[in-house]
Design a protein around this nucleic acid. Structure first.
Lengths: 107, 107
DNA sequence: TTATTATATAACTATATACTTATATATAGA
DNA sequence: TCTATATATAAGTATATAGTTATATAATAA
């Protein structure tokens, strides 16, 4: 079973509208940070810090590609996090351009 | 669908170990505040404030009986809150006494 | 009515949170 | 190498959170 402390950490990570929006974006697959910055109306460092919080809770995974970093949902989630993800209405993003987010960019 | 703000409110309400413990206690049914104060190692006003936060998020319901107040889980929960409740290991409490928590006290 | 008891609220405080701007790091390209 | 770009980290700040103690409220008992 999950320890209470681990549950608290995971739940704190998702109890914020901006982080919920980030997760809603990631429902469509891997997204690079630059695209996420366009969605949230906060600064780039703010997004970076939100992503770190989600990553440290084990909810998202990162992949480095050149100067870019792509984030995606962890395929393994605790049931209650998965239930939250299921509830979230996906947010579709417009990718920033072929240089960072084209299909051939994903490997 | 749940609005992001409502999700945030509910998730904030459960992202705290003491409130998770309260919910774990309530899995066994209705419990009065005095018993909950014995479980958490914090003051009575602290417990009262935690209960209020859970109540305002719609996760628990209250019933007044004389000077006592009994709290129980709301039977209607959003799926993700229900999933959290399912994950919680129940905490069994020893009722404070027949005056407030006996079976005939429950009506 | 007065005293007692259960719970809630108020006022306060220390810590956590979520931004901001400035700067660091790391990669790519000229 | 030098410059530009993507992202992360550092430092600072305003607000939120979760506890505390003191007090208020409401119901019961004497």
């Amino acid at each position: 079973m999950d320890s209470l402390l681990n549950m608290e950490k995971q739940l704190k990570a998702v109890s914020d509208t901006n982080r919920l929006k980030l997760l809603a974006c990631l429902k469509q697959g891997e997204v690079c940070v630059c695209d996420l910055v366009d969605i949230l109306e906060v600064s780039q460092p703010a997004v970076s810090q939100q992503l770190r919080k989600l990553k440290e809770a084990g909810i998202i995974l990162e992949r480095k590609k050149g100067t870019w970093k792509h984030y995606r949902l962890n395929e393994k989630q605790s049931p209650y996090i998965q239930s939250i993800l299921n509830t979230l209405e996906p947010i579709s993003i417009h990718h920033c351009g072929p240089s960072c987010c084209s299909e051939e960019g994903h490997q």
